[in-house]
């Protein structure tokens, strides 16, 4: 039994020099390795797109943290992705101010256009759709965010345009 587990269990990958450089920089901001752990997960995700088991183990090893504890942290925060995501992550605000201005039907529009529900990624790995708590742009509701960009006062037509533009970007 133990053999089987050992042979399939993921192993830490080697962190890249860029990742290590940034993690070392974060160490100057926080006095304890545990605090750097969460930062390191963000760094790894920035370069890899998500946090794989191999990445998580690598961070734990590098900072001498318990992998289980780091996993508990990684799964707590919704901006740490423990599964692969598409090239563009659509963070869709469905909190109350956007809801009052009709975001439910807009979500339906995205879902039928892309053929994905919350938490899913399109087959071409282009888009992942996730909900996000109130984006703090309620006077311009409904809104969504992709990467650094917030798209405001959404309509179905605007959403079509956003999707077309993002596809063209790739």
């Amino acid at each position: 039994m133990s053999n089987i587990i050992a042979s399939t269990a993921p192993k830490a990958r080697a962190l890249t020099p860029e990742e290590i450089h940034e993690i070392e920089h974060e160490k100057t901001h926080y006095p304890y390795a545990q605090a750097v752990g969460l930062e390191a997960l963000k760094i790894v995700q920035k370069y890899q797109g998500w946090v794989s088991d191999e990445s998580l183990l690598a961070v734990a090893e590098y900072l001498d943290l318990a992998p289980d504890e780091l996993e508990g942290v990684a799964t707590f925060f919704n901006m740490i992705f423990r599964r692969p995501v598409g090239r563009h992550v659509i963070q869709f605000c469905d909190s109350v101010a956007c809801w009052m201005l009709g975001c439910d039907s807009l979500k339906g529009h995205i879902t039928s256009t892309l053929g994905i529900e919350y938490g899913e990624t399109t087959a071409d790995n282009m888009f992942t759709l996730i909900p996000v708590p109130c984006l703090g742009d309620c006077d311009k509701a409904p809104v969504l965010q992709v990467g650094d960009v917030v798209y405001r006062n959404l309509t179905p037509e605007k959403i079509d345009q956003i999707i077309a533009d993002l596809r063209a970007q790739a």
């Binding site: 969460l38 942290v73 901006m79």
Partner: peptide
């Protein structure tokens, strides 16, 4: 002065949860 960007969750706004998040713990 250090700018810390959070990794998400509404509960991080509660001040003691925020402190845990800054320490790299579950919030």
């Amino acid at each position: 002065l250090c700018l810390h960007t959070s990794a998400g969750r509404y509960i991080c706004g509660e001040e003691t949860a925020l402190i845990n998040a800054l320490e790299g713990k579950r919030a």
